[in-house]
Design a protein around this nucleic acid. Structure first.
Length: 825
DNA sequence: AGAGGCAATTTTTTT
DNA sequence: AATTGCCTCT
């Protein structure tokens, strides 16, 4: 990986939000304000750029890099760190555009750019840890564990320690461990501070978990940072080498750095040249956009930058070039409610524009419908003066939690509006893809027990729990990885002949791909794509899913086969873009005695790189406005983007602000407010904020309270309207015409205050029963996913179910209370 | 060994 | 609603 956008789907992100006028030609300073120009020219010494939302931050950063290059600073001595692959890629893209000129008239740009490192913290750390694996206490072919892998490993460790997973849920233990790692506390340091029984046990688990990770030759996300920080701290020669290489350091979104990242940045920056002001470290950020406190981000890193680097130059970019004054006023009024912040007014010279709309809706479907209609009219008729219609790609919906996206999706689909959901990790989270990747991970790292356990018997090879337990115990006893233990099946007692045969088959399979670990020989694939293809084929995964699809006739199962194919093509694409020179793993690694050790076989290096790029995708990476569709994403993923029109949904107490922040912790509440602020400031021309009176949460309809943030907005700039009272369009679409059971005054989403105390000793009939009465067999209903169907039979009672025969999907049994059925006739 | 069914559970955000 | 884990049946 050379720091570009490592998109799993190969859809590279082009310049976004689009080239700004004057960007491509002439002087680097052209079109900049005084402050912006100052920031671009402040190349030496420590610099803090406080960049308010929409103040042209990206522009400044890219021009600053161009400035450095034009001063003759070699690209390889510049390091730019970001939080997502997407922004790293965008940075490279825009710098190259600046240097090359719009028409490609080369100003020597191509060459000047070569060697520039623009990447994420996590990618950088992964690369450094491979390059300096030995001094870091790792092997260069380590695997990166995602949260699922972490959970499996953690659970196993807890069980092995004889503790109950009910007392120590892996999730919460892992979150404690994660916090510790982000604060640079290793297991020993954590244990030293543990005093009560529970914490002491967590310390034990932490320690055992760390050992298990190393035994599996794996690191987790937090290790990437912590181990790198420790390496830089302890190994002077590595530190010096890197300090010498990267003379110019830039860090974006500095307000979101945690202690580990702060440490890494400080250690890479060093002290600077003797007699100088300090190192050339330029950090850019906005305390008002700090939204990762829950991940250990420490806002004091940016607030105390000046103390840490005395003599640092501070530049404030306060003028907003993005939003209308109404939107800006809304954002500014809201954020002023935060107590803990540096006072920093937002201002704009722009006039005009429509007011912000805040709408109270009836429920989430109503809400989704309003957003859909709004987008449609903006698309067809345009927003306001001078706009002939917003393209889809210029519109987005933001929400606090991913679960809110489903209703919106349905609504967009029905309205035939093209949309994409920003979930970069979703593809790799699919079961079939994870299985294929687990095979690949075992190929790349034979010590990876978590991946091995996932796939030894997938598809089934007759290896059952009994056999696995024997292997596990033997491996634990000898300290050898499970794969090595598998080779010795015949020596082990307690394994059925069926299981032993399956195990041998499995070992042969993997050995064929790896050449027994040597990656040499006739059976070893010639290319990465070839390897992935063969894994999918020869493991039996493809056949397994093909059979499954044939048996069920289900479209979702058919898609699994397609996904496996897509994995093969994404590997092919990775291979085509792979640049061995940019891969630190291909550089000779220094062994302890100072001698060089040979680079790994090409296929293995390629595979490692591929797996790494897969592990480090972020949700925000998949935002791809080039497709010309509306984007749906979380507020977190929205940071750094801008859209002509944006809607934020679910502005309700418990959703935004999220219920977890409701506990009275002022810091958490302020972070929620910043999150809302980030969302508002994404909008350039039009902004809509919605809340729903009733929202179905985890299948249960709940009455909500409008968000406090709504009441904190300025009335002069925000038009509030209550559309939550109208019931008309509920009529005729549903079963609530059954007036003796469900009166028209209450929307059907209103719960009967739960089961509660039965009145007069008899429980009120459940919602399901009421619906059941309205749906006699033979009547036609519509389901949002399966389309029209006929009721075959209905059962009453608490969880009333109906058997429905659908035209396309066959017969299904559904719980009436939850199936979103509409009566057709 | 393995599949399928039923019950219990669900703390948001992401590298 | 959806996922996960546990249990039973074949």
């Amino acid at each position: 990986m050379s720091g570009g956008v490592d998109s799993p789907f190969g859809m590279d992100v082009p310049d976004f939000p689009g080239p700004q006028p004057g960007e491509s030609s002439g002087s680097i300073l052209e079109g900049l304000t005084k402050e912006q120009a100052e920031a671009v020219l402040a190349t030496e010494g420590p610099v803090l750029i406080l960049a308010a939302a929409g103040s042209g931050k990206t522009r400044v950063i890219t021009r600053r890099i161009a400035q450095l290059l034009s001063m003759g600073i070699p690209a390889w001595s510049i390091l730019a760190l970001t939080f997502t692959n997407k922004s790293a890629g965008e940075m490279r893209e825009r710098v190259s555009k600046l240097l090359l000129g719009e028409d490609g008239a080369s100003l020597g740009g191509e060459r000047a750019l070569r060697g520039l490192t623009a990447t994420t913290f996590h990618s950088l750390c992964a690369r450094l840890l491979r390059r300096y694996a030995e001094p870091a206490g790792l092997k260069p072919d380590f695997t990166i564990y995602d949260s699922g892998d972490q959970a499996s490993l953690c659970k196993k460790v807890i069980e092995q320690l004889g503790l109950a997973t009910s007392n120590f849920p892996p999730r919460s233990v892992l979150s404690a461990v994660s916090n510790a790692k982000n604060a640079l506390q290793d297991a020993a340091a954590y244990e030293a501070r543990a005093h009560d029984w529970s914490t002491k046990n967590v310390a034990k688990i932490y320690s055992a978990y760390s050992k298990a990770l190393r035994a599996a030759n794996a690191v987790d996300f937090d290790d990437l940072l912590m181990v790198t920080a420790r390496l830089l701290e302890r190994d002077e020669s590595v530190r010096r080498e890197l300090q010498q290489r990267w003379q110019y350091l830039m860090i974006d979104e500095y307000q979101d750095t945690n202690l580990a990242q702060f440490k890494i940045a400080s250690l890479l920056a060093g002290k600077g040249a003797p007699g100088g002001n300090g190192p050339n470290i330029c950090v850019v950020g906005d305390p008002d956009q700090a939204i990762y406190g829950w991940r250990g981000a420490d806002i004091t890193n940016i607030l105390e930058f000046e103390e840490h680097y005395p003599g640092a130059k501070v530049i404030r970019l306060g003028e907003n070039f993005r939003s209308t004054k109404h939107i800006l006023a809304a954002a500014d009024t809201l954020i002023q409610k935060n107590q803990r912040r540096k006072h920093k007014p937002l201002f704009t010279n722009r006039e005009g524009g429509a007011t912000v709309e805040a709408i109270l809706c009836r429920d989430e479907r109503h809400e989704a419908g309003l957003v859909t209609d709004w987008f449609k009219s903006l698309h067809d008729e345009g927003g306001d003066e001078g706009d002939s219609g917003f393209p889809w790609r210029e519109m987005a919906v933001f929400y606090r939690t991913n679960s809110l996206s489903r209703v919106l999706e349905e609504s967009f689909r029905q309205a035939n509006i093209p949309y994409t959901i920003a979930r970069g990790t979703a593809f790799y989270d699919r079961e079939e893809v994870k299985n294929a990747l687990s095979y690949l991970r075992v190929v790349a790292n034979a010590a990876d027990d978590v991946s091995l356990e996932r796939i030894v018997n997938t598809p089934t090879r007759g290896i059952g729990d009994a056999a696995i337990t024997v292997i596990e115990r033997e491996a634990a006893g000898t300290g050898a990885p499970m794969f090595a233990t598998l080779r010795r099946v015949r020596e082990l007692a307690g394994i059925s002949s069926r299981a032993a045969a399956g195990i041998e088959k499995f070992v042969t399979l993997v050995d064929d791909w790896t050449g027994g670990g040597s990656f040499l020989g006739a059976t070893v694939p010639a290319s990465l794509a070839d390897l992935v293809d063969r894994v999918v084929q020869e493991s039996g995964l493809r056949t397994m899913y093909q059979n499954q699809a044939r048996a069920s006739g289900n479209e979702a199962d058919l898609e699994r086969v397609d996904n496996l194919d897509e994995l093969v093509s994404s590997a092919r694409e990775f291979e085509q873009e792979y640049d061995p020179e940019g891969d630190p793993a291909m550089e000779p690694t220094r062994a302890a005695d100072g001698s060089d050790r040979p680079a790994p076989p090409a296929l293995l290096a390629l595979l490692r790189g591929f797996l790494e790029s897969v592990s480090l995708v972020a949700d925000a990476d998949s935002v791809d406005p080039a497709q010309g569709s509306v984007t749906l994403m979380t507020l977190h993923a929205a940071k750094g983007l801008e859209f002509k029109a944006a809607a934020i949904v679910g502005l309700e107490e418990g959703t935004l602000p999220h219920s977890r922040a409701l506990g009275g912790d002022a810091d958490q509440m302020e972070e929620e407010r910043r999150l809302c602020f980030v969302g508002i400031t994404r909008a350039m021309r039009r902004l809509m904020l919605t809340c729903a009176k009733y929202r179905t949460i985890r299948g249960l309809p709940e009455r909500t309270i409008p968000s406090r943030f709504l009441s904190e907005l300025p009335k002069e700039h925000v038009k509030f309207s209550d559309q939550g009272g109208a019931l008309d369009d509920l009529r005729g679409t549903s079963w609530d015409q059954d007036s003796d059971d469900l009166d028209d005054d209450s929307p059907r989403y209103v719960p009967d205050d739960g089961p509660g105390v039965p009145k007069g000793g008899v429980s009120p009939p459940s919602i399901g029963t009421k619906i059941a009465k309205a749906l006699p067999p033979g009547c036609i209903v519509r389901h949002p996913q399966f389309g029209e169907g006929t009721i075959v039979s209905v059962t009453g009672g608490m969880n009333a179910r109906a058997v429905i025969r659908f035209k396309g999907a066959g017969e299904k049994t559904m719980v009436l209370e939850y199936a979103r059925l509409t009566r057709v006739r």
